[in-house]
Design a protein around this nucleic acid. Structure first.
Lengths: 136, 136
DNA sequence: CTAACTGCAAACGTTTTGCAACTTT
DNA sequence: AAAGTTGCAAAACGTTTGCAGTTAG
């Protein structure tokens, strides 16, 4: 479940102090499987729960991402999306609507990654499959 | 080579009217193999050639990208990079320095792309391999 | 008591836009 | 003249930051 206590434990397990605003943001993020922009989170938190300022939403999302509780998805130059699913996976991006969705498949793999440049360590591999509506 | 006439022909072949500012931007883009932000292009154009306003640089880059003369690379939330190499390829992104580089390999492939959602057409597949400096 | 956190508003950097002037046809 | 293009300055947008006040350990 997503009780406050569970969420608090989840944050603590990543070294994040579970304050009330952070719990509120966490509830919004983890209640649904979604790809939300900071603005989306701000609106949803303040609609569903008590008031959290925009600065705190941004700071909290940055903190959660840094601590590995959520994942930043960079697909659109105009805003960052936050994905509550931290299991490695890839994304479709609908260029027309700006909608992001998971690629529900075990079959998508990146093969043949060349040896990394010297002194570099892999941080992640992001695959964005850009889609548009078919011509009518 | 990259003579003005050749660049003009290159723009025309994509339906872009080769005006003087656009040629200047094209020279800067195609002179080197590089990943430049709009700001980079603005600085280089105005250092190397005659003055082109920031608005025109932005508009021109957008136009070139739309017409397929260059490719937008979305790797960093803070700025868009423009790649003069339009042959399909993928990128390393150095998270520490913000530097983008090509993956020079025929070996990197994306395998197992699932069937696209109904009524959707593929626009492109972008792979960003995020790297950071190894811990000392 | 101290350190951590929050909210507000102002600042920021990138990108877009309105519009008058200037080309080009 | 009409259509397309440019430059400037201002606006817009998402995001970050400074700081005073609040909360939590």
């Amino acid at each position: 479940m997503n009780s406050t206590a569970d969420l608090a434990a989840r944050l603590r397990s990543r070294g994040v102090n579970p304050t009330r605003p952070r719990i509120a943001v966490a509830q919004t993020l983890f209640a649904r499987m979604a790809h939300l922009s900071a603005e989306d989170v701000y609106k949803k938190v303040n609609m569903e729960r008590q008031c959290v300022s925009k600065a705190t939403v941004y700071n909290t999302l940055g903190l959660f991402a840094e601590k590995g509780l959520i994942r930043e998805v960079i697909a659109d130059p105009s805003r960052v999306f936050y994905d509550s699913n931290t299991v490695p996976h890839h994304h479709y991006y609908n260029v027309g609507t700006g909608e992001l969705s998971d690629i529900h498949s075990e079959e998508l793999h990146v093969l043949g990654l060349p040896p990394l440049p010297d002194g570099m360590v892999l941080e992640g591999v992001d695959v964005i499959v850009r889609l548009k509506a078919a011509a009518p």
